[in-house]
Structures are given as structure tokens and as C-alpha cells.
Design a protein around this nucleic acid. Structure first.
Lengths: 87, 87
DNA sequence: GTATTATTTAGATGTACATCTAAACATCGA
DNA sequence: TCGATGTTTAGATGTACATCTAAATAATAC
């Protein structure tokens, strides 16, 4: 997971909104859909981007798929960004 | 200057390299050129992107144009990113 | 089996980005 | 007026991204 990939992933507003939602609590795709103005396939795409950047994870629960933040990765990335921006 | 724009600007490796160079000291375009594998117009373009994101500034000094980091802006942005990523 | 929830693929559109070469401009020093 | 240093424009190329609709596929619950 490169810093480029992470920053690129976080540069899209809908994806940052997803991160914001998942900071509060884990959530199914259907729930997230209510908070965003995109279609299901588009949301799936954004989730895929965030997943490939290792920022989120998913697990199945019945018919639903529950997404959650990868807390440790987020912290790690925060460190990386701080280190890079440190003057 | 939106967070999207900032993250987008920082997601390109050459531009991060420019930031890294300017963290050490201010530098002319010709000097930066020695550290990057791009043509002068391409470098000019990247400098323009970073400038529009308010991350760097320039001043003329004789025939040269000297670029420098906007320290206060970088700190501000760091705060913004930390705040966003804060769990 | 059928309905629900989500992913994936396909096809399409429109936009943005990175890069180059070549050439035109602009600014300054000598 | 040259030469040096950069910027900008123009034209071109190739890639990537965000988005949609429609349809196929997958997994699970009932």
C-alpha cells in the first residue's frame, strides 16, 4: 500500500464520507447507501478502492455485508502523513 | 483550498518529491529539475498544481524563480488531515 | 424456489491527469 | 540586444477516474 494510493483514495469526497460514517460505527452497504448520492455499483466501486488501500474491511452477516474501518492501518497512515508533512 | 484538492496534489510522487526538496531549503526551478526526471514544462505544471493548492510560494531573484514551502499552510493541512483521520 | 443484499461485468460517457515536443512569451542580467 | 531562466500555450498521446444503466452472478434467509 503506497502513500500515493492512500492519498489518491482519500482525495475523493464520497470515499471520505464513507470513512466518516465508519468512524462512528460499522455499517452495511445498504445503510451507507442512504447517506450517499450514488448508485449501488458506484458505492461498491468506492468500497473496493478503500479496501485495496487497506483502509476498510468487510465481513458477511446474514444477507448483509458489514464494513468497518481498519483502525490500526488508519493510525499507521496518519503517522506516515504526519512524518511526510513534518517540517 | 479544499482537502480534496490538497490530497489530490499530494498523491503524485513527483510533487511529493518537490515538497521533500523544499522541506530542506528553498530552491530554484533549475535546481529542482536536477532532482527529478521530468522536462521543464512538466515541472512547471507540478509547481503550478502545488501553488494552486497553496502548498508553496515563489519569488523572483534575478533570473531565477525561487520556490519555498508555505510552512503555516502545511501545518494547517496536517491538522486537517489528523482531524479527519482521528478515530 | 424466491426474495434480499451485494458484487461484478459490460458498455458507455465525460472528465481529468501526466507526459512529451515545439514554440512562443516574459523577465532579468550583462 | 543576447543569453539564461522560467512560464505558458498548443497539440498530441495514453491512462485513469467517476458515474450511470442494465444485467449477470453469488450468498443467504425464508
Amino acid at each position: 500500500m503506497s502513500l500515493s494510493q492512500t492519498l489518491q483514495a482519500l482525495s475523493e469526497p464520497n470515499r471520505r464520507k464513507i470513512i466518516d460514517l465508519l468512524k462512528k460505527r460499522e455499517m452495511s452497504v445498504g445503510e451507507m447507501l442512504k447517506h450517499l448520492s450514488v448508485t449501488m455499483p458506484t458505492l461498491s466501486h468506492h468500497l473496493d478502492v478503500l479496501k485495496r488501500a487497506d483502509l476498510i474491511s468487510s465481513r458477511r452477516e446474514g444477507q448483509q455485508i458489514i464494513y468497518s474501518l481498519n483502525l490500526s492501518v488508519v493510525e499507521e497512515i496518519t503517522e506516515q502523513i504526519i512524518k511526510f508533512l513534518k517540517i
